[in-house]
């Protein structure tokens, strides 16, 4: 019975660890994620700085689609305004809702970067985004 009890305790500790770690990791990342999203939406952020907030594949896709540099094309991307309405972080992926815009982000060695911006919900399917990687 002692062995059974020990095994039960180990399983309990493992489960408790999962329950604590899964939501815990996510909530700790929320301020950093929100900061990137609001910086992208901030009218005072320079075009070059906004492009630097995009993952390279998304910045390249934006430039290619507009046949201009990313810094030129990003000025025409409509962005949300106002405060952050919600932040969801799951693993290395995140979604930020601003008033009037939804952005998707991913965690990179350089910090959180935007994979898609200027997104609108499209029913059951993926969001339709003006800016996203190919």
């Amino acid at each position: 019975m002692d062995d059974d009890g020990r095994r039960g305790r180990v399983a309990g500790v493992l489960l408790a660890g999962v329950l604590v770690l899964v939501p815990g990791c996510s909530s700790a990342q929320e301020p950093a994620v929100a900061e990137v999203a609001t910086a992208f939406a901030d009218a005072g952020t320079t075009p070059d700085a906004r492009c630097a907030l995009l993952v390279p594949s998304t910045a390249a896709a934006l430039a290619e689609e507009a046949s201009r540099t990313c810094a030129e094309a990003v000025t025409e991307v409509p962005t949300g305004t106002g405060p952050v309405e919600s932040v969801a972080v799951w693993g290395g992926e995140a979604q930020v809702r601003l008033a009037g815009d939804t952005l998707f982000l991913t965690e990179t060695p350089d910090g959180w970067q935007i994979t898609a911006a200027s997104c609108r919900a499209a029913g059951e399917g993926p969001y339709r985004c003006r800016v996203e990687g190919s």
Partner: peptide, 26 residues
């Protein structure tokens, strides 16, 4: 029961991560 519960929680987190990667709501 403990590992099935853990499976549902880790599966939920993994599913939501994939949802966000494909630009869908968690």
């Amino acid at each position: 029961l403990a590992t099935w519960a853990a499976s549902s929680i880790t599966g939920w987190a993994s599913f939501n991560s994939e949802q966000l990667m494909s630009h869908q709501d968690p």
